[in-house]
Simulated scan of single mutants.
Amino acid sequence: MENLIMEKLFEEAKDALFLIEENKCIKQNNAASELATDYPFTLEKVLEIARGEGCMLHSTMEKCLDCEVRADWDQAAFPLILEDSKGRQEQFSGSYTVINQQNALLSIRRLALQDRLQQVIQNKRLIEYVNQAHENERRALSQELHDGLAQSIYSLMLETRQLKWNEESEDLATKLQKIDEDFVALLGEVKQLAIDLRPTALDDLGLVPAIETLLHRLTETTGIAIHFIPMIENKRFPDSVETITYRVLQESVMNSVKHASVDELWVTLSEQAARLILAVRDHGKGFDLQQMNEHSQGLGLLNMQERAESIGGHLIVHSEKAEGTTVTLQLPIQWEGVK
């Protein structure tokens, strides 16, 4: 009788339940069968994630780029991303319970309502952040135009007016040379401002050359060695994919430069399963992601996540104190909204 009751509870459980024996499923309930039909996945990959041996990002892929998005998850509740037959992704929560030396129970459920409410709150915070970021960008641009370009132009205007009263030819040649040098510097300021607003290399040459140009400039200005490993050919991607990849890279690298206290960074770019994968890794100070979100200090990360999700992509940040940080961006190369 007791066995029949347990059998019924197992079959009617709302969570997807898999009874595991030596890495193989020997029994699953109705919810598990529906989950496996709606979200085809490799059981071995999920078990690797549950044991902290696999990659949360590449749980739906046959191969992983060794992106180091790994952790010793609490087996009572570990994050999981599954993909349906149409390529749409959804977040789940899994648990892994060892029964005895041979058997274990794997449970998978969709995110709880509380988690979804938390996502709504984060989205509201993100909207506020984006609005404030736009205002900050306008303020910075206005200040740059006023304190930089406007002052340089005014200085050149005064220098050219002084030429009217210059009677010594030798002194005139020196001042003309000085004015010429100032014009060259002013032109450099204008070009740099234009690059910051929209990198021309991204439009003219493509993503890989634009990244190489950006990282070379950042290496020169910060002194940090940035190792870029492109694992794809130099080809064009949809404009939104290239732009989001570039901006997420830019923000990720600057976060490491400002906060990680490192002298080296690693950037990889690859293409896997019709997705563009960007990874930015440092071995710096690291941080507690959950604590940062609770104290509303992770809005820059939310901004990057919103950029990715706007075209059906996903951003994963893995960080541990004193162990470093890895930011992994994956974007669909083709989808209905990408042009």
Rank of each mutant, 00 (worst) to 15 (best):
Q101H: 14
A31E: 06
L82A: 00
E11I: 04
R139S: 12
N123I: 13
G52D: 04
K27M: 07
L117H: 09
T37G: 12
V130S: 09
R116P: 11
I99M: 10
A140T: 13
C55K: 00
D15K: 07
T37N: 10
S95R: 09
D38E: 13
A32N: 03
Y129C: 09
E44L: 10
L126R: 07
Q89R: 15
L47C: 04
A50G: 03
N131P: 09
E48P: 04
E90R: 15
L80A: 04
D15N: 13
Y129E: 11
Q28L: 11
R51G: 11
E12C: 06
E53T: 00
A13P: 04
N131F: 13
K14T: 07
Q132P: 08
L57S: 05
Q75A: 07
V130N: 12
C55V: 07
L113D: 14
Y39H: 01
L17C: 00
T97H: 15
E12D: 07
F92L: 02
H134V: 14
N29Y: 01
R109W: 01
E128Q: 15
W73A: 01
K45F: 01
K27D: 14
T60C: 15
I121L: 02
N100H: 14
C67A: 01
K63H: 14
I99R: 04
I121P: 08
N123T: 11
V130K: 12
A71D: 15
W73C: 11
Y129P: 04
I20E: 07
E53G: 04
N123Q: 13
L82E: 04
D66P: 02
I81D: 09
P40A: 07
A16F: 05
I20W: 03
L19N: 08
F18N: 01
L141I: 09
C64A: 12
C67Q: 00
F18K: 00
M56W: 08
Q89T: 09
D15T: 08
E135S: 10
A32Y: 08
E48R: 10
A133R: 13
D84S: 00
E90L: 15
R51F: 09
R116H: 09
A71Y: 12
L113I: 13
D15I: 06
N131T: 14
R88G: 11
A50D: 06
I99G: 07
S93E: 11
R51T: 06
R116C: 11
N131E: 13
A76P: 11
L47P: 06
L117R: 09
Q89C: 04
D38N: 11
P79H: 06
R109Y: 05
F78I: 05
L17Q: 02
C64V: 05
N100A: 08
E62S: 12
E135L: 15
F10N: 03
S95L: 02
R139T: 10
E137T: 13
A71S: 15
N23H: 08
L43T: 00
E34I: 14
F41Y: 03
A104H: 04
G54W: 03
N100W: 02
A140I: 14
H58T: 10
A112E: 12
E44P: 02
I49T: 02
T42A: 12
Q132T: 12
W73Q: 09
M56A: 14
D38Y: 13
R139W: 12
V120R: 07
E21C: 14
M56N: 02
L43Q: 00
K45C: 03
L35N: 04
V46Y: 05
S33L: 12
R116V: 15
P40E: 08
E62Y: 03
C25R: 01
